[in-house]
């Protein structure tokens, strides 16, 4: 509970007394590139395979001849867009980017680089963290969209190479009973997760005390705490937005 209070104070400190807008803009674009490149490959890879596996398992589960084959496509689409694309991307993102943010900021803390910024009169919290948070909130939704697309493509590949059903059935399945709101819903989720991962990881790194060992610990904690927070937020968002 006390940690939560400290976290909120940290967020407040970050948004008050900021630097000039142009400073942030430059840092923001740099962060977008770093964050994007960092997690692009892994998220793409994971999504492609998860989509393929979902299709395979759906095919395996459909034993009744009464169930139409297009269910494979429909289920792959539903699971990818609603859950896998935003949530799985966020968890991979926490592992790659979150740990890197906590480690990077934690190292700056123990080597007094943060003190050096403060002595120069810079609000180190907002200077270091804000660009990362905004980059996370922009890049994670983009990555989630990509993840969804790759997952559905993975299912298509599995359908063809695993000979699960006629391709036309799969194509029909991914179009059938499509609820348009699911896409913005997934993007909102990714947006929130982007904030959660970057802010929690930065908070963990910023408050490191001690040496290299503590930086390592902060990195790990950043990932575990982010994952728990992602799943909690996932539940709350589904409960409020889908009802």
């Amino acid at each position: 509970m006390r940690r939560l209070g400290e976290y909120l104070i940290f967020l407040w400190k970050m948004f008050s007394n900021r630097e000039s807008f142009s400073t942030y803009l430059k840092l923001f674009f740099q962060e977008c590139v770093t964050i994007g490149i960092n997690s692009l490959f892994l998220i793409g890879f994971v999504s492609l395979f998860v989509g393929a596996v979902i299709a395979l398992q759906m095919a395996y589960n459909i034993v009744s001849p009464l169930l139409p084959k297009y269910i494979i496509g429909l289920a792959t689409r539903e699971m990818m867009i609603l859950e896998m694309a935003p949530t799985l991307s966020a968890i991979v993102f926490a592992g790659k980017v979150g740990s890197q943010i906590a480690g990077g900021i934690g190292t700056m803390r123990i080597t007094e680089q943060i003190d050096a910024l403060e002595v120069m009169g810079i609000n180190s919290a907002s200077y270091l963290v804000l660009p990362k948070i905004f980059a996370g909130m922009v890049m994670l939704p983009a990555l989630a969209v990509l993840s969804g697309a790759l997952g559905i493509w993975g299912g298509w590949l599995a359908t063809i190479f695993g000979d699960l059903s006629p391709v036309e059935d799969y194509i029909y399945g991914i179009q059938n009973q499509f609820v348009a709101f699911e896409v913005p819903f997934a993007i909102i989720k990714a947006f929130v997760f982007g904030f959660i991962v970057t802010s929690i990881s930065a908070f963990k790194g910023y408050n490191v005390k001690g040496g290299a060992l503590e930086v390592g610990r902060a990195s790990t904690e950043a990932v575990t705490t982010s994952c728990i927070a992602i799943l909690a937020a996932d539940f709350i968002l589904a409960d409020t937005l889908l009802s």
Partner: peptide, 16 residues
């Protein structure tokens, strides 16, 4: 005042 202060830290604290 801060713009008039220069500080050398124990571990140099260069931005890596």
């Amino acid at each position: 005042i801060r713009s008039e202060i220069g500080m050398l830290f124990q571990g140099s604290a260069l931005f890596d």
